[in-house]
Amino acid sequence: MSRTQDPHRPSFPFGNAFRILPKGSSLSSKLAETLTKFEEKLGDRLSKLVPDNKNDVVSLSWMRRAIQSLCETHTDIKDVIAELHPVSDWDEKWVDVYLDNSVKLLDICIAFSSELSRLNQGHLLLQFVLHNLDASSSKQLMRASSSLDGWRQHISSKNPRVEDCHSILDNLIQSLNLPKVKHSAKGKVLMRAMYGVKVQTVCICNMIAAAFCGPARKLTDLHIDEKEKYLWANAFKELQIRVNTEIRDLFCTGRSTVLKELEAVDTSVKALEPMTRDGVKPDEANLFQDRVADLGNGAEKLSRGLDLLTKEVDHFFQIVLSGRDALLCTLRVSSTNSEIPESKAKGRTLFSF
């Protein structure tokens, strides 16, 4: 993908999604403090995700920190819900949107787990390569060459679940404007806080999906309403500009992946392929051993990074699971005029978004 091939990148201005206060009204000091504390912490987390240099975009370690940040934010919104209890102005329309978005986010998390598992499966091929490269007999070099080719094919194959993230993310982006809460100050605070959660979640998932999908995934620039004065707005804009710009620049060079650890292994594989295919010349013995060592180190770092990120995704799943459970319990207890229909609550996978 190049800039000339993609001149019009999609962007979705969110508009005036959560104008927290109508003219002439105000929040109580306690509600204002709750909202300010949440937005300041969200802004600090987003700032910490801004990469220090280009080499950190996009690495598995950065992805892990990004998911950790989502875990912290979803834990925070759970605390906000507890502080605002009871919230009685939730209507069925908002609950429907909330549950629909939850299913979409669940699908994205399943897709990410699937891709991490697929990438980790390639580690077995690399281990077989390294085993055969312990000696430089022609038979073992042929086996190593075949395994290297198998690894390249495996890594370049497409994962339908990840590719499905394209439409799911676009739908989530377009659904960021949730129905407004008109008469409840608590409801307004929670809706505004939830908006921040959704923006961070969609933004990070959008970046990770692009890194997994390669050039096929067109990054979407998210835009927030400047009039709302979100305390996390500047940090969010800086993060999005830095990461999205670097991802696009990397893809413009013709790379099929922007994952640093995966790219390092691929570089080692390309360097070893001619030697395993054509044989190691006498004067290349030291160079051959150095390249084998590079592949071994790169493969170990990739495997370790995939394992740590997989654990963090699982952790995120559990946190948001309990978060949505807490919110649904609050709705059931506090709603006096409109209960959540059992047919909608029963059988749903509990997931927070």
Rank of each mutant, 00 (worst) to 15 (best):
residue 286 N to K: 12
residue 269 V to R: 06
residue 238 E to P: 00
residue 258 V to Y: 00
residue 237 K to A: 14
residue 275 M to K: 11
residue 231 L to N: 04
residue 261 E to F: 03
residue 253 T to L: 12
residue 245 T to I: 04
residue 247 I to G: 06
residue 243 V to Y: 03
residue 259 L to S: 05
residue 245 T to L: 04
residue 266 D to W: 13
residue 248 R to W: 08
residue 272 L to C: 14
residue 251 F to C: 02
residue 268 S to T: 07
residue 268 S to Q: 08
residue 266 D to F: 09
residue 246 E to D: 08
residue 252 C to N: 10
residue 259 L to K: 00
residue 256 S to T: 10
residue 276 T to P: 01
residue 241 I to P: 02
residue 279 G to I: 05
residue 282 P to C: 14
residue 284 E to A: 15
residue 232 W to N: 07
residue 275 M to A: 15
residue 286 N to M: 15
residue 229 K to Y: 11
residue 279 G to T: 06
residue 235 A to C: 03
residue 274 P to G: 13
residue 266 D to N: 14
residue 249 D to Y: 15
residue 268 S to E: 02
residue 234 N to F: 04
residue 242 R to L: 06
residue 281 K to T: 08
residue 231 L to F: 05
residue 273 E to C: 11
residue 274 P to A: 12
residue 244 N to F: 07
residue 232 W to M: 10
residue 252 C to G: 10
residue 254 G to R: 02
residue 233 A to L: 06
residue 258 V to G: 01
residue 282 P to V: 11
residue 238 E to F: 00
residue 270 K to W: 09
residue 238 E to Q: 12
residue 262 L to Y: 09
residue 283 D to V: 12
residue 257 T to N: 06
residue 268 S to A: 11
residue 276 T to E: 07
residue 277 R to F: 10
residue 249 D to C: 10
residue 240 Q to D: 08
residue 260 K to D: 07
residue 254 G to S: 00
residue 230 Y to W: 14
residue 254 G to Y: 00
residue 270 K to S: 14
residue 268 S to W: 08
residue 258 V to E: 05
residue 283 D to I: 09
residue 277 R to K: 15
residue 235 A to L: 00
residue 243 V to A: 04
residue 277 R to V: 12
residue 267 T to V: 14
residue 255 R to K: 14
residue 281 K to C: 03
residue 262 L to N: 07
residue 279 G to A: 09
residue 260 K to F: 05
residue 250 L to M: 03
residue 273 E to H: 13
residue 261 E to T: 01
residue 257 T to P: 01
residue 229 K to Q: 15
residue 261 E to R: 06
residue 264 A to P: 04
residue 268 S to F: 02
residue 285 A to T: 15
residue 240 Q to P: 05
residue 234 N to Q: 11
residue 280 V to E: 04
residue 249 D to F: 11
residue 258 V to Q: 00
residue 250 L to P: 00
residue 268 S to H: 09
residue 238 E to N: 12
residue 276 T to C: 13
residue 277 R to I: 14
residue 258 V to S: 01
residue 254 G to Q: 02
residue 268 S to I: 02
residue 243 V to G: 00
residue 236 F to P: 01
residue 252 C to F: 07
residue 264 A to T: 09
residue 244 N to P: 04
residue 261 E to Y: 03
residue 253 T to K: 12
residue 267 T to Y: 12
residue 248 R to G: 07
residue 272 L to F: 09
residue 264 A to Y: 04
residue 243 V to S: 04
residue 230 Y to F: 12
residue 257 T to Y: 05
residue 271 A to C: 05
residue 242 R to H: 11
residue 255 R to Y: 06
residue 273 E to V: 10
residue 262 L to A: 15
